[in-house]
Write a protein that binds this DNA or RNA. Sequence first.
RNA 1: GUGAUUGUAGCUCAGUCGGUUAGAGCGCCGGAUUGUGGUUCCGGAGGUCGCGGGUUCGAGCCCCGUCUUUCACCCCA
Length: 454
Amino acid sequence: MQKPTLPKGTRDFGPEQMRNRLFIFDTIRHTFKRFGFQPLETPSMENLSTLTGKYGNEGDQLLYKILNSGDYAAGLTELDLASGSKKLTPSIAEKGLRYDLTVPFARYVVMNRNNLPMPFKRYQMQPVWRADRPQKGRYREFYQCDADVVGTDSLLCEAEIVLMIDDVFRNLGIDYTLKVNNRKILAGIAEVIGVPGQEATLSVAIDKLDKIGRDKVQDELRERGFSDETLTKLSPLFAFSELPLDQVLVQLTTWLGASETARIGIAELQEMIQLVGQYGLADAPIEFDPTLARGLSYYTGAIFEVKARGVSIGSISGGGRYDNLTGTFGMPGLSGVGISFGVDRIYDVMEELKLFPAGVGQGTQVLLIPFDLEARSVALPLLSQLRESGVAAEVYPDLTKVKKMMDYANAKAIPYVVLIGSEEVQTGLLSVKNMVTGEQTKMTADAVLSLLTL
RNA sequence: GUGAUUGUAGCUCAGUCGGUUAGAGCGCCGGAUUGUGGUUCCGGAGGUCGCGGGUUCGAGCCCCGUCUUUCACCCCA
């Protein structure tokens, strides 16, 4: 028989990993709830018409398509087959796996527009799928934890996103840097250097600045048809890197003052920072990064990206403001802003930096070990009482060698065992062993209860 | 999608120039101990060498294909 395997880019999560993953999920959910977001889940699959065209050309290629049920090839002609996979796909696949949580959310909002309290705040923690090649920090199935608010363009929401990011990573113990930018500033740059409307091309290139350096960025732009004059006008961009935030904003205003779009973007950024300060978060590690672009084409205002310090892994969180996401579903003019936490990358970061707290998600607290049937009749009532009191407790189900049962407790890192044999049954004093220290004492069942419910 | 890289016991890995019956450590199972784990000692089980084809008297080792792992590019959480 062939050994079973997993599809490329997918993983199982064993009990140990799940304890740590649940710690991350719980931490994020805790923050989302306290900021007033409500839970939402959407199906794993959506109609392809909902998904395509939202993530750019690259994104469409990374969508997992689901073959139609039944005879998906019925009615296909030789001509269809000859026309190539791109044209063939819509006729044999009408559903796909979700690529992110934002687009399904937009679809949900549009479908339920009359019943949602506006502004509507929802959080969503579910897996998403992307058909790209796995590598470090990149999987084909991974979880995102999103919080979005739609129905308001208040910059208070941007500020609260910053607060949530700080809350989450502070609670997880991750040292992070929050990079912010604004699409309006990017658009303004494009205007000022004389290539209005081309901020997408510009972004893709300058986004790589810290990776490939200034010269190569300029080479790439030149290849894409940017003139030398344009590139000269762009040069102030490369001077921002190490300046403090307020000075950067001043210089930006000088450079981009001619563009109204840029002025608005700068003002938005300024107000957001100011509001964060009013919330009392003065020391957030925020960095303005004019090269931060982010691929998703639907962002229109603020853009966020979080990097963990001390590890080389992609961003562990990202988000931004979008003004017209619901427009493609026939509901224009609804503005929203959101943030997405990448659980799997956060896990990798915490694993690499050894940030998981030691006792996180402790499993069974105590194992009862009865030696015979009579002892079992003493163990079971105690077991129920322990569970009643909220103690995670179990009994070894087979009557077997003590060694084997102790091994089991060891393997599961259960800190206490209660040994019950004929002697314990007679005296009513149970043998309680601390598996960490090896210390063993005799006590009544009531004493066991109070020991473990402390 | 492009370019590399990996695969041998449950895990981590040896395996010489292509040569007879593929090894180690850890883990697992049993015993030393019919009421005591994590230490010790003794014994044991466990392999389609990723899969398929080819070269050869002979392949874990060489060649081709394929899958998988990891990494970079593109892009992204």
